[in-house]
Amino acid sequence: MSVDQNCITEEEAELYDRQIRLWGANVQRSLRNLKVLVIGLNGVAAEVCKNLILSGVHSVTMMDNGNVSKEDLTSQYLLYPESIGQNRAQASLKAAQVLNPNVKVSADTSSPLDKPISYYSNFDVLCVTKQLPAVVVCLNDICKLYSIKFFSGDSFGMFGYLFEDLPDQKSENNELCSSFSSALNHQWTPKTSLKKRKLEDPSYLVFKILTDFRSSNCRDPSRSFEENDKRVLSDLRNSVLKSFNVEDDILPEEYLENVFGEYGPTCSVIGGMIAQLVVKSLSTDSSTSYNLHLFNHLRCQLTGMNFILSSQSKDIIPPPVEGSVVELEE
């Protein structure tokens, strides 16, 4: 592409003025070439789509094979009351496209597992929400293969998390690489400084409980099954506390009170931060110090942690499932 074609037009300069003054014309040009795939069109994904479409990326492909439920409407702004029963990605198309006619917005009604691996090489950025943790791990690996920028995030009621894995991180140090599975399978030992931190913020335990819930139930906690789900969450809480060998009062019960469904304001935080990290990844001086960000909903605190997979364990942590986990940057 010649330089001229890649120039920012008068119209774009006017439309994107307030952000170009923040991140500069070069980042804006990179944004305009950015092809984004968003998987799972729930509340968090809708916010990611909204923010990136507004910012002027090249294209956003919205992929979801599920249908709109009444509950979806409470947190997913791109839907309308008449969307109930329609495919989630299709139903989101209209509201997503009008946000910015310059961006190519499309819907795909297939499941991510139906796609050949090579399909993903068409994108620069992948953002995954509402998928089983095993699927997220798998998509994370595919992104590593093609050097695609990988993000995932969810709202479990008021609680939320987001995960980031940029391909550049690996090249800086071949021994270490970030991965969602290391964040997911972190082992608790008294030696990790995480133990110190959790005295202040039990968010990692909440993350663990809720991703475990999703893995074993193939759905998220819901007010529709409130009685049952509260019991399951309570059991999970006990087993997580036990496996991490920490006291009961580390994780007050109230942390698990409002973790049902998806919550609009939490989607705004998680989707806002993911979109911001996508933009940040385009600037030349971007450096990532954390890959997992946990939103403590009782304090409105979004805290970063770093989970890195190492081929040679440098720490004396007993190796968990695959590879050993060390925690840096604490």
């Binding site: 923040l22 910012s55 935080v269």
Partner: peptide, 25 residues
């Protein structure tokens, strides 16, 4: 234009996060 209009840069993501914090409160 920045100086004469005292333009404050503004982006969707920061606004979305602040708004969410407002509604939590």
């Amino acid at each position: 234009k920045s100086m004469a209009g005292n333009i404050i840069p503004a982006i969707a993501t920061a606004n979305a996060m602040v708004a969410s914090l407002v509604v939590f409160q």
